[in-house]
Design a protein around this nucleic acid. Structure first.
Length: 315
RNA sequence: GAAUUCUUCUAGA
């Protein structure tokens, strides 16, 4: 049964949901009784690809087999609803699981906190955070990540700082992702000094920056039009063996367009192709926008045509 | 005891 579970998990993670369900049918045919983990895996698989209807029908099937959903089943479903932005139904599920005598665990809290925080309701997110300890649970790194990321988006940087301190006081060690959230947040809020300070702190803690870390720094520099510094950082990134991704190029292209340096923007567009990236609609839009702003509409049209040839749809 | 759930990056408008 573990073999079946592993197989179903693998198929679900790859989005091969039909095949995963076929495996479930095969199990039933062979009179192997699927347990709750198998069902939870399937429920989660459908949730993460947005197929909530099927996820709920699997929940029903499971109950039909006499298996009661556990907190993990509910967490998977709440996660699915949160992903499609349906916080209201997520709240209903929360009430339902409590009615059934289950207790929300820290994952349930993290899910709802992220749901509220990333939809801009930082107040509710913070309220839930306060509730965690009252229920005798301990916030995790992920709790802080979800909260800080939401607060960063809203520009509530003083609260971010407080939470980061609170997190350290609990002896939760920051990881690369922690710094990525913070660096990106400060970078976007225009506090490049703080962003670079954290970048240094990250190095002191022997945490290696990844492409997202650099993208965060580049985003701030590009927004401010500090393209010489942005280029230095880009070079440092390459020197340290961190591979840029499509976002890295998009960020830089946009930065060069903003300052009217279309030559560099165009070179990067080319570089992107040479590195094996397919510029997406976004990469084209930025350039086309840049050319338009400079009044170079014929170049913009050429790019638009090229984009169409590649069968990319205009935004 | 590791078969199942949570967190981070890109344009314009």
């Amino acid at each position: 049964i573990i073999t079946y579970g592993t197989l179903i998990n693998g198929l679900c993670k790859e989005g091969r949901l039909h095949e995963a369900k076929d495996v479930l049918k095969e199990m039933l045919n062979r009179s192997i009784v699927p347990n709750i983990k198998v069902y939870n895996t399937l429920i989660d698989g459908h949730c993460r690809f947005g197929n909530m209807q099927e996820a709920f029908s699997l929940l029903g099937e499971m109950q039909g087999d006499g298996i009661l959903p556990d907190i993990i089943s509910y967490n998977a479903l709440i996660n699915g609803l949160r992903k499609v932005g349906n916080i209201l139904e997520a709240e209903e599920l929360w009430n339902r699981l409590v009615d059934e005598g289950l207790c929300p665990d820290v994952v349930t809290y993290n899910l709802m906190i992220d749901g509220y925080a990333s939809s801009g309701d930082t107040l509710k997110a913070l309220q839930l955070y306060e509730e965690i300890e009252k229920k005798g649970l301990e916030p995790t790194l992920i709790t802080y990540h979800a909260l800080m990321d939401g607060l960063c988006r809203e520009g509530e940087m003083q609260k971010v700082e407080q939470l980061f301190d609170a997190m350290l006081k609990k002896n939760l060690l920051p990881e690369a992702i922690t710094y990525n959230i913070l660096i990106h947040g400060y970078s976007k809020s225009g506090d490049l000094q703080k962003a670079f300070q954290l970048f240094e702190q990250m190095g002191q803690n022997k945490i290696l920056p990844d492409e997202k870390t650099y993208n965060g720094l580049l985003k701030g520099l590009c927004t401010e039009g500090k393209m010489q510094k942005a280029n230095d950082i880009f070079v440092q990134m390459l020197d340290r063996g961190v591979n840029p991704n499509a976002n890295t190029y998009n960020t830089l292209i946009d930065g060069y367009c903003r300052v009217g340096n279309l030559m560099e923007a165009f070179k990067l567009h080319r570089g992107m192709v040479e590195e094996g990236f397919t510029p997406d609609v976004l990469a084209y839009s930025e350039l086309i926008n840049g050319f338009c702003k400079e009044g170079k509409t014929q170049e913009a049209e050429l790019l638009l045509n090229e984009m169409h040839e590649k069968q990319l749809l205009p935004p």
